[in-house]
Design a protein around this nucleic acid. Structure first.
Length: 564
DNA sequence: CTTAGGG
DNA sequence: CCCTAAG
């Protein structure tokens, strides 16, 4: 049986990414779950024709599906899993509201317990508004992440005697980050710093919006002025009397509940959920042409895929298995690429869980004939996917299986779920290397993105430095990598950074294009404040800095006694 | 298991 | 980021 596939071009802003065509398929029957496992890959020609994909394309797509953010998730409550891939993590095509996220099984942080949360919120600060709690409660799963930030740091006027030492990277005034004046190039850098990956999108507005979302951890970014102040978006144009500086702009779009309604029609994507950039480019549709040369990541990916399972993977797998009512998977043996592909889809969707930032799936090694389940890991490739595939889509072809793959928004009866996992920083290469005594350790460093840093700072301000596990659980619930130790380490570095490079700044200006953009001053300032508040100030350089700790009123209180 | 610190 | 000691 064939499913209907609709293809649309870059239509009226439904997709944020310029030129990104909407791809979705709609099932006409309820039979989806027993349906396809085999997907036919087709390419959408300029005139709308569907052309069978070439082998190369199939290969590429397969890679994409394995390496890319394209997650396949399963829905439990439907009784039958529905796989969905979202090629674009920014998930523009998502429905304005994800229904019943309760059903989501693979969510990493579904354990957000309302009660606990409530309690914690209460204990932390009475000032938390119900709406906030609300939005936190809905924060489970992949959707909630963007609501992490809203937390009130009210009244924290960063304005103070801010260091006007300008990092050229952000044009900022008094602790504000102003995106408006940035060039495309600068925006690209900012984007990279924010999300940890590059973009080639040239749409200034889009970039600004995206960055703003990342920096504010809010999805609710109106597209007029982009000035981020103290983690919040400041709307310069409008009177600020209305919004007290917080909350108003940062609610949880995922729930749709507290949105400050209808500023625009794109409530969905998380700022930080940004993933690989999709560059639409109809001119580049020529796939066979550049598939080989264009991608400098190809080799990495190739290498990545052949890693054998490590002990940790196995362990993780067991965790997964115990969690899910292990469904029986039939090995699907196909010789063709399509066969492999479908096999991947299938297994992925069958049990695809993100653990520790890795997407762990069980794969039936049908090709090997062993029938043994092998946990395999697929990490997300860092930079953007091959744009050419934006025009590719999958046609579900009925078979004897129960998974269905759908992408994007779908009108109709089945739900589209967003994958969980990372936000803007979908880095990969978390290759682990076995150590001599059987242990394993991460090999590559995962660069901290700005949004992560900001979350960390937020967390410290809320729970206090030292409560790493708390911060980990609450503020970093969605960042499965980043252990509490990581947080601690990062904080240590932040402290160092914040107190170090204050004095001289001129000379550093040259590194505008530095791969690692320095932490924006506003953030460092905040770090400094927090450090002082919690007397974490390194003894040696405790001089010149204007404490500015006057900005009390934050939630750090004196519960820090242990650290004082 | 979580923190703190050193490597 | 890793490892270890300590609570």
């Amino acid at each position: 049986m064939e499913t209907e596939v609709e293809v649309e071009g870059n239509d009226e802003g439904k997709f944020e990414e310029p030129g990104f065509g909407k791809i979705y398929s709609s099932l006409s029957s309820a039979k989806q779950l027993t349906d396809p496992v085999v997907y036919k890959l087709v390419r959408v020609e300029g005139d709308g024709r569907l052309v069978p994909a070439t082998d190369d394309e199939v290969m590429e797509v397969k890679d994409l599906l394995v390496d890319e953010k394209s997650e396949v998730c399963t829905v439990a409550d439907v009784g039958q899993p529905i796989g969905c891939i979202s090629n674009d993590r920014s998930s523009p095509g998502m429905l304005p509201q994800l229904e019943s996220s309760e059903g989501l099984s693979p969510s990493e942080n579904t354990e957000v317990d309302p009660d606990k949360l409530n309690a914690r919120l209460e204990e932390t600060g009475p000032s938390f508004a119900p709406s906030l709690i609300q939005s936190h409660m809905h924060q489970s799963g992949g959707v909630g992440e963007c609501s992490n930030a809203p937390v009130l740091t009210e009244g924290r006027a960063l304005t103070s005697t801010t260091v006007t030492t300008s990092k050229p990277d952000f044009s900022k005034l008094n602790g504000e980050i102003c995106l408006d004046n940035l060039s495309i190039k600068e925006l690209h850098e900012t984007f990279k710093a924010t999300f940890g990956r590059e973009t080639t999108v040239k749409d200034k507005q889009w970039l600004k919006r995206r960055i703003a979302m990342g920096l504010t951890n809010s999805c609710d970014v109106s597209a007029t002025t982009f000035i981020i102040k103290d983690n919040k978006l400041v709307n310069k144009g409008k009177e600020d009397g209305s919004d007290n500086g917080d909350g108003a702009l940062a609610n949880d779009p995922a729930t749709g509940t507290t949105m400050s309604g209808g500023q625009q029609g794109l409530p969905i994507s998380h700022g930080s959920q940004l993933e690989d950039q999709v560059v639409s480019d109809k001119r580049n549709r020529n796939i066979g042409d550049n598939s080989g040369s264009e991608d400098h990541h190809t080799e990495q990916r190739a290498a990545k895929r052949v890693r054998k399972p490590t002990k940790r993977y196995i362990e993780e797998l067991s965790e997964v298995e115990s969690k899910e009512a292990s469904g029986k998977l039939r090995p699907i043996v196909k010789n063709s690429l399509l066969g492999q592909m479908s096999s991947n889809f299938h297994t992925r969707s069958a049990r695809n869980v993100s653990l520790e930032g890795r997407t762990v799936v069980t794969r039936l090694d049908s090709l090997g004939g062993s029938g043994i389940q092998i946990p395999c890991v697929s990490r997300v490739r860092r930079s953007r996917p091959r744009k050419n595939f934006m025009a590719l889509l999958f046609l579900g072809v009925a078979d004897e299986d129960r998974q269905f793959l759908s992408t994007g928004a779908v009108g109709g009866h089945h739900k589209v779920l967003k994958q969980v996992d990372s936000s803007g920083d979908s880095d990969d290469n978390v290759v682990t290397v076995p150590t001599s005594k059987g242990g394993i350790r991460r090999k590559h460093h995962r660069a901290w993105t700005l949004s992560e840093v900001m979350k960390l700072v937020e967390g410290v301000s809320r729970y206090g430095a030292g409560r790493w596990s708390e911060i980990k659980r609450l503020a970093f619930a969605s960042y499965s990598y980043r252990t509490s130790v990581d947080l601690k380490d990062k904080w240590r570095n932040l402290l160092k950074a914040s107190f170090a490079q204050i004095p001289s700044d001129k000379g550093i200006n040259s590194r505008k294009n530095a791969a690692t953009m320095p932490i924006p001053e506003p953030i460092l300032l905040r770090v400094r404040e927090l450090a002082e508040t919690q007397s974490q100030v390194p003894p040696n350089l405790s001089s010149s800095k204007v404490p500015g700790t006057g900005s009390s009123g934050n939630s750090v209180h004196e519960k820090q006694s242990g650290y004082l």
